[in-house]
Design a protein around this nucleic acid. Structure first.
Lengths: 198, 198
DNA sequence: GTGCATTGCGCAATGT
DNA sequence: GACATTGCGCAATGCA
């Protein structure tokens, strides 16, 4: 046991965790949805680092490593808004016109957003469904991360064993080469003293 | 370039992403904080799977793989609460006494929670600071995940190369062994036909 | 369009 | 006490 198909189990699961992430899609969403900032306290947080989404998240993304890690600007700290903390996210249209000078003119949001009342049973149903989906998705992500870590550990282990095997083989090869060179010398002597040293 | 120290860079970063996670700490937090459920709609979601915290996250955690993936019970769907969706998380003390019959008697929350007004500048300051910390922590986590993935990919690559090297060495070894056996036979023949086949 | 999946974010609890 | 982690709900968006 534990001889050949030792890693395959975790690898299989790991591979299956990345179904079709190699698609090239054009994000082009640099605006991040300013409407969501009106939910609590409309902090103007552009946050240009966490914007990889979908495909760019799982690909190697070699350019991602140069992120400005220590650049977390305090998002203006404007606690003037949302003091009356009630019904602040009731309608998108009412708050978006406040941000109209900050929006690019080409990115005007559809103001007629079919404002769904938060009291409606349909809203609650949608929310609950989404909450369940979110929990499920996050569990999946957690599982995927765990699998990746396990996979890395197992690959590391296997690497060490392979390196050791290579060392063994190389040494054995050197030995045989040495023997052959000896015999070759003996052969060059045309039947000299046999069984000299080996 | 890309000949020998090819993997070390990512490995270095990857290793540095796991500073001291190997500590053994006793979680024992099975209650998950019932108070937080009173924030929106007190959904009774025990969610006993995502509770690995700290050390158990990075260890192999071999028992974690048997999680009930497809068990996402609809959390009671009680949209009766939080219909007046305004000021629902105004103060913990005011809402907690409403949920007191649902709390275990041994888990009576400290009602005197020094109820911080959400309008206070100190509260906003703390919130903003925590938001910054959260963003930073999540970026760190994203980075760590990316590094782990890259590490796994590089280890896989290296593994393939090592396997090929082993194949090479093995074949070379077999050849030499064959040669040696031939010469041994020749030697046993006491000076037979030299250079027969090789 | 409908429904689920992903993702960024803020909040609160909790850990360090 | 400040910062770091983490689970969660919300909203936007992606996707089938």
């Amino acid at each position: 046991m534990m001889s050949d198909s030792r890693v395959s189990s975790v690898i299989q699961e790991w591979v299956s965790s990345y179904p079709g992430q190699a698609q090239t899609q054009s994000p082009s969403n640099q605006v991040v949805s300013n409407a969501q900032m009106s939910q609590m306290d409309m902090l103007s947080y552009n946050h240009s680092q966490g914007m990889m989404r979908g495909g760019a998240d799982d690909r190697v993304a070699e350019q991602m490593m140069g992120l400005p890690y220590l650049s977390y600007p305090p998002p203006c700290l404007n606690n003037s808004s949302s003091l009356g903390n009630s019904t602040q996210h009731q309608s998108l249209a009412s708050t978006q016109q406040d941000f109209s000078p900050f929006l690019l003119p080409t990115l005007r949001a559809p103001v007629t957003k079919r404002s769904i009342s938060k009291d409606s049973a349909e809203y609650r149903l949608r929310r609950e469904r989404n909450n369940i989906a979110v929990r499920k998705s996050r569990d999946k992500a957690r599982r995927r991360i765990l699998l990746t870590q396990q996979r890395a550990l197992q690959l590391q282990e296997e690497n060490q064993k392979l390196q050791m095997r290579i060392g063994q083989l190389t040494q054995e090869l050197d030995t045989l080469k040495h023997i052959l060179s000896q015999r070759h010398l003996q052969g060059a002597e045309a039947g000299g003293p046999r069984e000299s040293s080996i």
